[in-house]
Design a protein around this nucleic acid. Structure first.
Lengths: 257, 257
DNA sequence: TGCACATATCTTGCATACCAGTTGGCACAA
DNA sequence: TTGTGCCAACTGGTATGCAAGATATGTGCA
């Protein structure tokens, strides 16, 4: 059945946050139209909206691609998140305690995070870890900033994929728990500090290759590779190369399902 | 000659920031297409992007309109600006002094603001007063937040129009001067405080009508009205009513020129 | 064998045609 | 005169077709 533009864009954002769409992934209009059973018009509308939100780009007559943030953009994205999230926690501090219903919602979210950690659904795990921050912004009573933060979080997720983040999911979840705990006891200063350190941890887990050697990434990818583990073979392929990683056009869309 | 979608959307945003497009203004696809000499497709693309940025909305088969923020949205918008702008100033404080070129750019901007105050070009004045904040964010080194702030500033401009802001342009400009001065001497704490008070001033200049009576606005607008002043007659008409303020379809587009 | 050029194919850019819902006016009836 | 229902014009929603640029392919020549 046919799908609306907002659904399509939501699905794409989810796929990005779930690390199912790597930076540089091609998003062809025609394949998407077939997948969602609608015309190219609808797909274009969805992609146009995502472009306005900074999630995808279009290269004229070449195609639509998931963005590949530069190091500078990566820095800005983390700074932006820091500014918004810390500011949000701080500004809520003065207006009194956090809402009870909101707190419950946050705790439910934490439960889901923990559940996802036990299962091996990497996609859902990644999505929830990012969505926590959006959820937090919503609970602190600002949907405008929450929406903004969703885009920025998707962005940092892409950055993490691009720069091969080594950050630990378990650690992140624990951070989240502590942040919520601090908010619950009304200690906004602590919450702010915890959040600052949390974002700092995630950011510093990025592997920044020396910008002097543009071949470093390729060299790393094509190194002799002593077959680390036979069991690890069928693992998700991470498209760390700019984009020529193209699978055939009918396969890559699986990420959106 | 024909115009691109990005130009069109940029022009609309500018018109909003210059208070040339009031909240609720109709933005018909066909009239815009004729004005910019392009097809509806291009116009739709521009409007779609603006919708993603929260500047316009579309009511199915009724038309596109400049948003009319609710009181809640107004609160969120100001809070969002406070969070971002204060956070930006604060986070820049730790990384050392402000860049020299950036400072020059800010001062140039202040000059333009002063010039606009002397002239009676209300549109340019309003635009520059809002653009200052965008410019500041850019100068503090974060284009991502600057872009976000542009949307939020446009939003607060609309709010000011909708809630008949009484805020003083001269005062705002002086605030800006002081903020830049504080930044120049490296006193980020003062800059932050000044900015907080500045935004607070603008926000509190809004005239908030009692939300209990949905007819209050109408009643106010339709009151007997003892002709306050004959000289004030040809003043800019402020469309505080939802939208039926429609001038004929060829007139309202003048705001975009 | 290697390089350059022509060409075929793929992908988006844009305009237009047609469809469907909404609105406001007009005519008619009470 | 007032209220009601119909109709026509208007406005966006969606699909499609064609144009044009970019890329990949294949061929011929050096």
């Amino acid at each position: 059945m046919s799908t609306s533009a907002s659904e399509i864009s939501a699905r794409i954002v989810e796929a990005v946050m779930a690390q199912k769409l790597a930076p540089g992934s091609r998003l062809g209009e025609q394949p998407l139209a077939m997948l969602f059973d609608c015309s190219r018009t609808i797909v274009r509308e969805a992609l146009t909206r995502l472009a306005a939100r900074g999630i995808v780009t279009v290269s004229a007559r070449r195609g639509w691609f998931v963005i590949e943030p530069s190091q500078d953009e990566a820095r800005e994205a983390f700074e932006a998140r820091r500014v918004i999230e810390l500011g949000l926690i701080r500004s809520t501090g003065s207006t009194g305690k956090i809402d009870k219903a909101a707190l419950r919602q946050l705790k439910t979210h934490l439960q889901r995070e923990k559940a996802a950690l036990k299962e091996s659904d990497v996609g859902n795990r990644s999505f929830l870890l990012g969505d926590f921050h959006v959820c937090l912004a919503e609970c602190l009573g600002n949907t405008l900033l929450a929406d903004t933060l969703r885009d920025f979080t998707a962005r940092t997720t892409l950055i993490a994929m691009l720069y091969q983040s080594t950050h630990d999911a378990v650690q992140s979840c624990e951070d989240h728990v502590q942040i919520v705990a601090a908010l619950e006891r009304g200690d906004h200063a602590a919450a702010e500090a915890l959040m600052a350190s949390h974002i700092g941890t995630v950011q510093s887990a990025l592997r920044v290759q020396a910008p002097t050697d543009p071949l470093a990434q390729l060299r790393d990818a094509l190194a002799p590779l002593q077959q680390k583990s036979a069991a690890a073979r069928p693992a998700r392929r991470k498209a760390t190369t700019p984009s020529p990683d193209d699978t055939d056009s009918s396969t890559y869309l699986g990420a959106l399902l």
